[in-house]
Design a protein around this nucleic acid. Sequence first.
DNA 1: ATGTCACAGTCCCTGTGA
Length: 253
Amino acid sequence: MIVATWNVNSLTARGARVQTWIEEHQPDVLLIQETKQNDAKFPFADFASLGYESAHYGQGQWNGVAIISKVGLSDVRRGFGDDDEEARVIAATCAGVRVYSCYVPNGRSLDNPHYVYKLEWLAKLRDVLAERDPEVHVIVGGDFNVAPTDLDCYDPSVFEGATHVSEPERAALRAIEATGLVDLTRAMHPDEPCYSWWDYRNGSFRRAWGLRIDLLFVDEDLREKALASYVDREARKGEKPSDHAPVVGEFAL
DNA sequence: ATGTCACAGTCCCTGTGA
């Protein structure tokens, strides 16, 4: 089973590239973030023609998360069931695995109310995951907008006093892991940076100025069944790329 | 740090968010 997560930075702008990537990589499940669409615009038919069912939680101009699957898609849940109006999380069951597509708030700056929202959002995600059925496999993927350790950041000195690397954000990720989840890419590549995002500005990609902020958290049994995890840097190259590359996990299921 | 991109509004530019 191949599961990937990809922040596409507008599915409207990225539709053709996303379709090509799916055709070439044939993921069983793709977790998408930042569709920036409402349901009326979401390309359900295009994905269906490739053999995928889709579930979308869209909002329009901002945010928007989706799950597409060719191994079944049921029990879809949108949001946390609270009064948050931002479309940042969708869950579904695919081939018996509970999968989540998450777009964690950016935070903007440490003194911004959006940073508080980010920490509260991550705490809510932890609470949802803490209450899950331990008998069911789970994959929580997405753009977490947090680099878990300094290895996940090309130059920690540049990020002093900034979001994405602060201790409270990293503690929030550890709290999620403490529910029994493993950061798959890091578990399989303990020493390589494995960046997944590069700023569009400054030639960041060619200079390798990246962050690893797109993550796949899996339960401990799935980690044992994992065959590979990698970032597809090719998808960051060429015409009109997203600023994020897909992160892939492969499992013997 | 800032060499970009995408969006909406009201247009071929500006503000916002990332």
